[in-house]
Nucleic acid binder design. Sequence first.
DNA 1: GGACTTAGGGTTGACATGACTTTAAGTGGG
DNA 2: CCCACTTAAAGTCATGTCAACCCTAAGTCC
Lengths: 230, 230
Amino acid sequence: MTVQAAIDQRVSLAVSTVIFALRPHPESGLMTLWLPLVRRIREPYEGQWALPGGPLEADEDLAGSARHTLERTTGLAPNYLEQLYAFGSLDRSPDDRVVSIVYWALVQPDEVARAVDGENVEWFVADELPPLAFDHTEIVDYALARLRAKITYTPIAHAFLPREFTLAELRAVHEAVLRTHLDPANFRRQALASKTLVPTGTCLQGTSHRPPALFRFEAGLPSNAPEERR
Amino acid sequence: MTVQAAIDQRVSLAVSTVIFALRPHPESGLMTLWLPLVRRIREPYEGQWALPGGPLEADEDLAGSARHTLERTTGLAPNYLEQLYAFGSLDRSPDDRVVSIVYWALVQPDEVARAVDGENVEWFVADELPPLAFDHTEIVDYALARLRAKITYTPIAHAFLPREFTLAELRAVHEAVLRTHLDPANFRRQALASKTLVPTGTCLQGTSHRPPALFRFEAGLPSNAPEERR
DNA sequence: GGACTTAGGGTTGACATGACTTTAAGTGGG
DNA sequence: CCCACTTAAAGTCATGTCAACCCTAAGTCC
C-alpha cells in the first residue's frame, strides 16, 4: 500500500464554523445577521463561496480548531461558540470523503472586523446568500434555525453586544435575529425574570430622551455542551 | 514518509452509539433505562466496558454506521436515532487521536434482544454503570441528560413502545425515564393536546379493570436533525 | 413651556399547568 | 347478585405565564 492509498482509504475530518454578527442591512438599514464566507481557490467548487474552516490538525481541539478559523477569517475571538452538527453524507464532496464538524459562533462586529477582511473573505447577509459550495447552504440554514430557536430560550443575545448594554439594545438583537417586532414592556419583564442581567447602576447618557439603565450579563446557566463546559 | 507515519499523522474517526431500552430494574422491579456495553478486548482499557461503536467506514453514512453497530450489538433496528455530539478532546485516548461522533438510539426491548447478547455484550442499568473506558462515562451522562430533557418537550417516548399502546404505558415510559410520578389525568390532557396521538378505536382487553383505549403515534413534527430529515 | 421620544411599570384577558374530585367500566370475592 | 377494588377518563379550580395594551417618568429639541 502506498502512502497515498493509505490516505485515500480514510475519511478525512474538517472543522467549519458559521460565524454570525449583526450589522445594518445595506438597503433597509435594519439590523440583520451577517456571516463571513471564503472564496474557494481550488476545485471542487472553485470560485464559489464556502464556510470558513479547514482540516482538523492533530494537536487541535475541535472547539480550538473552530476558534482558530474564526481568528483567521475575522480577527476576533467569539463571545459564544457551540458545536452545531457533524455532517458526513457520502456525497457531500464530489471526489473525496469528508466529514465536517461544524461549529457556530456569535461575535460582536468591532471596527477590527472590517480591517481583517482578506482577499478571499467577504461578509454576506445571512438570509440572502449566493449558492454555496458543497452542502454549506443546508448547513447555514440549520445554523440559522438553531440560533433562532436557541435565542428564544437561552440568554445568548448578549454575545452580539459589548459588555454593558441597555435593554433596548438587547431587544434589538432579538428583533434582528428573529425578524419580528417585540413589545418593549413584555421583553423587559421577561429579560429581568431570567435572572441573568445585573444592573450596573449607571445610565447611558447622551440620548435625546430618558436615559436607559445599563446592564451586564451574569452567567446563570452553565453551558450544555459537554466538551466546552469543563 | 511511511504508510504508518501517514496514518499516525491523521486523526481517526469513530462512531459510537448510546442505546437505550426500558426493562424492569433487577431489584425494585420498576421500569428503568438500560444500555448495552461492550467489553474491550485490547489495550487501552482492556477488559473495561465501553460504548459499542467502531471506525467510520469509507462507504458508510454517519447514521448508517450507528445503525450498523446497533444491529451488531442488539440485533435491532432503532425506533429513534439522533446524533448526540462529536467528542474530540486531545486526551480522550491515551495513545492515538480519536474523534468520536456519538449517536443515541431508542429501541424497544423485544424478545430478540436477549438472544443476541454476545460474548462481550452486556446490558446495564443506565444510572448504575461500572467505570467505563475513555470518556464514555461523560458521554453517557450527556446522553441521559439529553434524553431526559428531550422527552419533556418532544414526543419520543413512543419509541420505547410497540406500535399501539395505552396512555398508561406511555406515561410509564415518561415516569421511568424521568424517575418521577406523573399525574395520570394531567398527563393524558397534555399528551392528547400534542396532536401526535391517534386513537385506534380499539381498547386493550384482558385487564382486571376498565379497558383502556389504544393509541398510535402519528408524526406531527419533522425531525430537527439535518442529515436524517431528507 | 410644550411637543416628542423612549424608559419603565401596571392592568387585563386568554391560556397552560398542577392538584384534586368525580364518574365510568371492567374484574373478582363473598 | 351485590359489593369492594382497580384503573380509565373527564371535569373543576386555583395559580402562573404571556401577549396586548395603557399610563406615567424623564430626558431632549424647538
